[in-house]
Design a protein around this nucleic acid. Structure first.
Lengths: 235, 235
DNA sequence: TATGCTAACTGGTCGGACCAGTTCAATTCT
DNA sequence: AGAATTGAACTGGTCCGACCAGTTAGCATA
C-alpha cells in the first residue's frame, strides 16, 4: 500500500531549491524582483545558511535567478536566459501539463538528435551492436510487467540513448542526456497512450531497420512515431 | 545588459572546480576511481570544506563525478552520463580544440534549433521584429571595431538567440542558451575565418529573408553558412 | 575460514564569525 | 534648498569546527 520507491529522503538543499522554484514558477514574484536574503530564508526554513547559499547557486545554474554579490538575489527573466535545466525544473514541478507547442519543439529536437544517431549507426553498425540492442529489448520485455510507469519510461529512454552511444557520436549522447527529464515525461505519456506491447514492438522494428542498415527507414520510423504521438494528443 | 564584463577574479569554488575538472579530463583518474575525500581536498587546497563540498556538487551537475553519500566521490563515465554542461566544461578547458565530428554534431543541432525558429519567425514576424533586428545589427556594426574577439562572438550569439526569442518558441530559446559556451567557440572561429564584415552582411541578409517571410530561404542561408564553415575548416 | 561487531571514515548539515563590496538614508557642505 | 559625502546596515562569499548518520573495512571472535 505504501511501498515507497522514490527517493524517500530529500536533501535539505533539494527541498529548498524545490520550494523556491515553486515560488518563482508560480509567479509569486516577477522578473527582476529582489528575493529575501539568504539569511532570511535560512531563518524561515530553519536550514543552514550554507544550504541556502548552495541552493541559490543551483537556482542560478538553472537560470531562475540572478545572483548579484553583495547586493541580492533577483528573479531572472528565465524564459529568455534559462536553459534546459529551467525546462526540467518546470516539468518536474508542473508534471506533464506542458503546452502543445512546447512538446512539439522538444520532440522536433529529439528527432534531430536521435535521427542523426540513427543514420550514423546504420552506416557503421556491427553485429555486436545488434546483439546488444536485442538483449536490451529482451530484458525489457521480460521485466516490463513488473515495472512501474516511471521505471518503464526510464528504460525506454535508456534504450534510445543506447542508439546515441552505439553511434559513437558522443555529443549526441550528451545532448540526449540533457533532455532526460523532458524525455521521461514524454515516454510516460507515450506508454499510457499506446501501451507497452506496441512500444516494444517499435523497438524491435528499429532493430530490424538498423540491421538492414536502412538509415532513412529508421529515421522515418522515428518521425512517424513522434507524429503519431502528436496526433493522439490532439484527440 | 549584454556584453558582460569579464570577472577578473576567480572565486575559490570556481578555482577548485577548474582544478578537479582538469584532473579528471586530463585522465589523471579513470572512470570509477574514488577521489580523495572532501576533507583531503580542503587540506590540500587550503579552501574550506564548504567550498569543496559545493564544488563537488557542481562537478556532479556537470556529470563529471558521482557522489555517493557516506561513501565517497567517484569519477563518472561522463561521456555516457554527462550533459551539455559536461561538453561546456570540456570546451572551457580545452579551448577551441574540438574534434571535427563534435563540431559537426553541434552545428547540426544548431541548424535544427535555429531552423525551427527561423521558419516560425518568418510566418509570424511583425514590422517591430524587423525594426528590432535592424537596430541590433546597426548597433553591432557600429561597435564591432571596438569589440574584442569574445565580445563579438557573444554579440553574434545574442543576435541569433534573438531569432528564437522573437519566434515566440520559448523552448528553442532555452535550448539555444544551453549551447551558449559551445556557440561562443563557434563564433570566435567563424569570425576569424570569414571576417567581421562578411559575418554582418550575413545578418543583414537574414533580415531581408525574414522580412520577405521566406522561411525556406532563411533556413537554407543558415545551412549554407554552416556548410561553408565546415568546408573552410577542411582546408 | 567464516562471521559479526566496532571504530574510523565519508558526505551532509549547521550556525557563528568574519570579509568586502553595495546600498541608501542621514549628514555635511556648498 | 540642493548636491556631495559619509557611514552604518545589509548583502553574498568564505571559512571553521562541530556534529549526524550511513558506509566500509579491519579486527576479534567463534
Amino acid at each position: 500500500m505504501n511501498a515507497e520507491r522514490r527517493k524517500p529522503v530529500l536533501t535539505n538543499k533539494e527541498a529548498f531549491v524545490k520550494k523556491v522554484s515553486k515560488e518563482i514558477l508560480s509567479g509569486k514574484w516577477r522578473t527582476g524582483d529582489k528575493l529575501p536574503s539568504e539569511r532570511e530564508y535560512a531563518a524561515e526554513t530553519g536550514f543552514g545558511k550554507t544550504v541556502i547559499h548552495s541552493g541559490f547557486e543551483q537556482l542560478a545554474a538553472m537560470g531562475l535567478v540572478d545572483i548579484k554579490p553583495k547586493s541580492g538575489i533577483y528573479v531572472a527573466d528565465y524564459m529568455k536566459t534559462g536553459s534546459i535545466d529551467t525546462l526540467n525544473a518546470i516539468i518536474n514541478l508542473r508534471g506533464n501539463e506542458l503546452g502543445r507547442d512546447v512538446i512539439e519543439a522538444i520532440l522536433d529536437l529529439r528527432l534531430a538528435i536521435e535521427g542523426m544517431a540513427l543514420r550514423a549507426l546504420c552506416s557503421r553498425r556491427s553485429d555486436e551492436d545488434i546483439a546488444h540492442l536485442c538483449a536490451m529489448t529482451e530484458e525489457l520485455k521480460k521485466r516490463s510487467s513488473a515495472m512501474g510507469e516511471e521505471e518503464l519510461a526510464e528504460s525506454f529512454f535508456l534504450w534510445h540513448r543506447e542508439i546515441c552511444i552505439l553511434s559513437r557520436k558522443s555529443v549526441l549522447t550528451l545532448f540526449m542526456n540533457t533532455t532526460h527529464d523532458v524525455s521521461i515525461a514524454f515516454w510516460v505519456n507515450y506508454i499510457r497512450l499506446f501501451g507497452i506491447a506496441f512500444a516494444i514492438k517499435r523497438l524491435e522494428r528499429f532493430i530490424e531497420l538498423i540491421q538492414a542498415r536502412d538509415g532513412e527507414g529508421a529515421y522515418q520510423l522515428l518521425a512517424v512515431g513522434i507524429a503519431e504521438y502528436l496526433a493522439k494528443l490532439e484527440m
